[in-house]
Design a protein around this nucleic acid. Structure first.
Lengths: 243, 243
DNA sequence: CGGGAACTTGATCTCGGTCAATATTGGTGG
DNA sequence: CCACCAATATTGACCGAGATCAAGTTCCCG
């Protein structure tokens, strides 16, 4: 259960205004002051580590990678954010402390942080939603640390694919094959591996008939349960039954 | 800046009551209903993954490891919590989702979660302190993912020692050598390495005169800055100057 | 089509894991 | 307080997963 933070940009697709799921319309207008919905193209940065922070974002469509880089070029993708998720919330004395990069074309609402904080201070409901969101993120990163610290390369990939597949299905309700839209480099930076190793791991899982490919960036999950077993996913999904 | 969450157990050492840094004494009595201060001995569990969650904890003294384990024995320590920190806050449908193990003898205050939530819902100040605490934890885990995913063994150890040393100094104000009180296994489980590799990495850093040892579990940091350079610590410390 | 980027595949190397043999150490009881 | 012993740590030899280096190959996109 992720992203319980309901914000006014929700459910506004195709309308002429961003405000339609109100808590309290008067306040929402204030919050949206920073610019409401914005768009980014694939590979563009929503924000950079060290930039002065003004806004955080709630994704309407697309996928964003939140990452942290070393001077020597190594980088670690710390989380993937999908529609409904928030990002760009963490700061270190007024500056973003991670990078946010659009992995696909992205639409997101920007919220002025100062105004949001002021607003949340008077809205216990909203404040506790923020706590929920942060708690969920913290659980995820705990799991991610287990993956990075303890799993081998193929286990890591299986874990990732199973989780992403489940998340994608849960969010879209779709049965269509998942299109990752992530390059090998991006997957590698997420899993703490090299592109070559990711490539080989994909080969292995394919040989085991757990996944298949249609084009480079569409990976079809044939056997979610099998992936979960290999990836040591402890959780309760998936819903459907497969071989 | 960690652990901004001020709770009524703070500053109560040596008094006959736990309540002395009040926000509002009437409410605090309610919150403390679960039992106030408790003690654990080294190696005891404060809570286990899967246990029904009733309380979370704020550490008065000692160090606690928060971890996640695999069925096959592998485990990953996800965070170290020191005096002033809270832990045991995350849950998955009413159950703890991590393990909390005392690395030293520990004193901590237990807070009934339900009552705390109810209380926080009416105290915007407290709610935003929770947000602060979770945000800080999330920044830490982001950094930890970078360490696990991108750094080599000696870099990981250097990073860890530098951070722990700084944290320890900041919290205690002491100049005395840091006594880790962690076994090689615990360090290994934190850094995603084996005990042998940790042992060898300690040897290397010692050869470089960056650290020294007095007994097995007291590691003396001789050159914090040097460790930070090796461990790719980007942050702003340390305060003092050393060679 | 053509060219360049991304991906795959193969060969080799290296870091860290594994296994095994000491060496320390700290806790316990005499 | 000391001696002993089990637990923990160190060290060495070897191995293997994954990194690195180097070709190919495929896939986009103009």
């Amino acid at each position: 259960m992720r992203a319980p933070l309901a914000l006014p940009c929700d459910g506004c697709v195709g309308r002429s205004t961003n405000i339609c799921k109100p808590l309290d319309p008067t306040h929402l207008l204030v919050m949206l002051g920073l610019g409401g919905m914005r768009r980014w193209k694939r590979r563009e940065m929503l924000f950079r580590s060290g930039d002065a922070m003004s806004a955080f974002f709630k994704i309407r469509s697309g996928i964003v990678a939140v990452s942290r880089a070393l001077d020597d070029g190594r980088r670690q993708i710390v989380a993937l954010r999908v529609p409904g998720d928030c990002l760009g919330y963490l700061e270190t004395d007024g500056k973003y402390c991670f990078e946010g990069e659009a992995l696909t074309d992205v639409e997101a609402c920007a919220f002025d942080r100062r105004r949001f904080d002021a607003f949340a201070a008077e809205q216990p409901r909203l404040a506790s939603a923020v706590v929920e969101t942060l708690s969920a993120a913290l659980k995820q990163t705990g799991e991610a640390m287990l993956v990075l610290g303890q799993l081998r390369s193929t286990e890591r990939l299986a874990h990732f694919l199973a989780e992403f597949d489940s998340l994608y299905r849960a969010r879209t309700g779709s049965t269509a094959p998942v299109s990752l839209r992530m390059s090998r480099r991006e997957i590698a930076d997420y899993l703490g591996l090299t592109v070559e190793t990711v490539s080989r791991a994909i080969g292995q899982l394919r040989q085991q008939r757990l996944i298949d490919r249609h084009g480079v960036d569409t990976i079809i999950v044939l056997n979610n349960r099998g992936l979960r077993r290999i990836g040591k996913v402890r959780s309760t999904e998936p819903v459907g039954v497969d071989p």
